[in-house]
């Protein structure tokens, strides 16, 4: 039973990670990161059920709050750079290199 949730969670995490690697739009990249966080949440809740304690569920709530804060900061940064460059592509920001 738990295994199914875990497999789903691992799939979500992988989709998120691969999304970060292959998508160019910063917003989408960021959403993929959120997907990874939610995959972790799913795993936490599944483990909480497996272990029979509440810790995992509580942690999931914390993670949601943190993710929300991250959204605020992330969107602020991405919007700023979009306004500057008229582009949200993460590949366009590569002045700093070598």
């Amino acid at each position: 039973m738990t295994t199914h949730y875990l497999v789903l969670s691992a799939l979500l995490f992988s989709i998120g990670a691969i999304g970060v690697l292959i998508r160019r739009n910063a917003i989408v990249v960021f959403m993929c990161v959120e997907l990874m966080l939610n995959a972790a949440n799913l795993a936490l809740v599944a483990f909480a059920r497996m272990h029979g304690n509440l810790d995992g569920q509580i942690i999931a709530f914390f993670v949601m709050v943190v993710a929300a804060a991250e959204v605020v900061v992330g969107l602020a940064i991405i919007v700023t750079i979009f306004r500057t460059r008229r582009s949200a592509s993460v590949d366009d920001v590569n002045l700093l290199k070598y």
């Binding site: 998120g16 990670a17 910063a26 960021f30 990161v33 992330g74 940064i77 700023t80 993460v90 700093l96």
Partner: peptide, 17 residues
């Protein structure tokens, strides 16, 4: 700004890990 975007995206990525 580029530094901020990179730091943020990669930082968030690592936080997810």
């Amino acid at each position: 700004q580029e530094a901020a975007v990179k730091y943020f995206l990669l930082g968030a990525f690592s936080s997810a890990f």
